[in-house]
Simulated assay, not measured.
Amino acid sequence: MADHERTADTIRIDAGDAAELLEVLGFISDWLDGPDATQLDQSLTRFVGHPAAYSRDALQADLDRLAFLLGDDSDRLFGTSE
């Protein structure tokens, strides 16, 4: 299967593709933690329909887990980033 290999339990992606995904996830993560966090909270609440449905913190945690699975250094996931 070209650059991607798929089995029942595993999907493998090219290292360059993973690096690009990590860059995008880092960008989004930084934006979520940025100065507009309050507005992002409000926008996400409007989008999902209820504040308890999904929060910015939950989204951040999901993005951090995905980054970790793609090979990130885990600083954000384990709370060791500054």
Rank of each mutant, 00 (worst) to 15 (best):
A61E: 10
A18Y: 11
F78M: 15
T45P: 02
V48Y: 03
L69Y: 09
L69F: 06
G79M: 08
I13N: 06
E23S: 13
S81W: 05
E20W: 04
R12Q: 02
I28Q: 02
I11G: 01
W31T: 12
A37F: 09
D3C: 05
D73P: 00
A53E: 10
A8C: 05
D17F: 05
G79C: 11
D33P: 09
D30H: 01
G71L: 00
G49H: 08
S74M: 14
A53D: 09
L63G: 07
E5N: 03
T38L: 14
V24F: 06
F27M: 06
A15W: 00
D33K: 13
A19T: 04
D9S: 03
A2F: 09
F27Y: 05
T38C: 05
T80C: 08
F68P: 05
I11H: 08
D14T: 07
G16E: 13
Q39A: 14
Y54G: 03
G34N: 03
D33H: 08
S55K: 04
S74F: 10
A53M: 03
R6F: 12
R65E: 15
H4V: 15
D41P: 01
L21E: 01
T10M: 03
D62F: 04
S55A: 11
R76H: 15
L22I: 04
L63K: 06
L59R: 10
I13V: 14
D9L: 02
A58G: 01
D14C: 04
F47N: 09
V48A: 00
D62N: 12
D33W: 13
L44W: 12
G79W: 08
V24Y: 08
A67W: 02
A8S: 10
R65L: 15
D73N: 15
H50M: 01
L40M: 04
E20M: 01
F78S: 06
D3E: 06
F47I: 01
E23Q: 08
S29N: 12
R6E: 12
D36H: 10
M1L: 06
G16T: 00
G16I: 02
Q60M: 06
L22P: 10
G16C: 07
R56T: 06
R76F: 11
V24M: 09
L22M: 08
E82S: 11
D36I: 07
G49K: 01
D64Q: 13
L40I: 06
D57S: 15
A53V: 04
D9W: 09
S55G: 08
L66K: 00
A19W: 09
L22T: 07
A37D: 12
D64A: 14
T80Y: 14
I11R: 00
I28D: 04
Q42H: 04
T38K: 12
W31I: 01
T45G: 05
D73S: 12
S55Q: 09
L66E: 07
V48N: 05
D62C: 02
G34H: 13
